[in-house]
Amino acid sequence: MNTLVIYTYPNHKSLNYAFLQKVIEGSKENPNIKELQVLDLYEEGFNPVLEFNEQKRRRDMYRDPALEKYRKQITWADKIVFVYPIWWGRPPAMLLGYIDQLFAANFAYKDKKGLLPDGLLKGKSVVCVSTMKGPTNYLLFWLNNAHKILMKRALFSFVGIKKVKFFEFGNMENTNGKQTKKLEKIYRYFKEVNS
């Protein structure tokens, strides 16, 4: 299984970076993971800003040469792992900008007659590892599960990815947030996952 990890946090001395390290550590010890690639969007200097004009049209995004490297990574991957914080109930703008540009028509999905398109990323799986300052159940009870609906239903299902796993860790700025236990949970998951 080829695994692509997309890390979206600007600080390498952070808890999010520690989660990234546990994903990598567990993946390297997993005999089911053949190859691992890590894309650090901030370190990469990824430009999340959409730009459309007479020369750069939205309908042509799927063949934008500046994004070819990233399209190849997604095509190559069997499993895509996202590691990011939840800010204001949703992923950071950097990650949303990546999604806006990479999950484009004629690459991630193809329009057809009817309500839903044909998802072109079928057969892949996704894991979202996210952290937040507030309590874990905040997203469920206060925001009606908006984060999971956004990621699973509005994005991944739309492009044909049906297998999606979430790890939403709350209270991460609390000194008693059980960070060590949560890091160990991520390590064990990636060490043992087989699809």
Rank of each mutant, 00 (worst) to 15 (best):
A105C: 11
N106I: 11
A108C: 04
Y109Q: 09
Y109N: 03
D111G: 10
K112W: 00
K112P: 00
K112E: 02
K113P: 01
K113H: 06
L115R: 12
L115S: 07
L116E: 06
P117V: 15
P117I: 15
P117N: 13
G119K: 09
G119H: 05
G119S: 09
L120A: 07
L120P: 01
L120Y: 03
G123A: 15
G123F: 13
K124D: 06
K124Y: 02
K124I: 08
S125E: 13
S125W: 06
V126F: 02
V127D: 05
C128G: 14
C128Q: 14
V129D: 04
S130E: 09
T131Y: 00
T131I: 10
M132Q: 02
M132T: 08
M132P: 01
K133D: 07
K133Q: 04
G134N: 08
G134M: 11
P135K: 14
T136W: 00
Y138I: 15
L140C: 06
L140K: 11
L140V: 14
L140M: 13
F141D: 13
F141P: 04
W142E: 07
L143N: 12
N144S: 09
N144C: 07
N145I: 10
A146Y: 03
A146Q: 12
A146M: 06
K148S: 02
I149S: 08
I149M: 05
L150Q: 14
M151P: 06
K152Y: 00
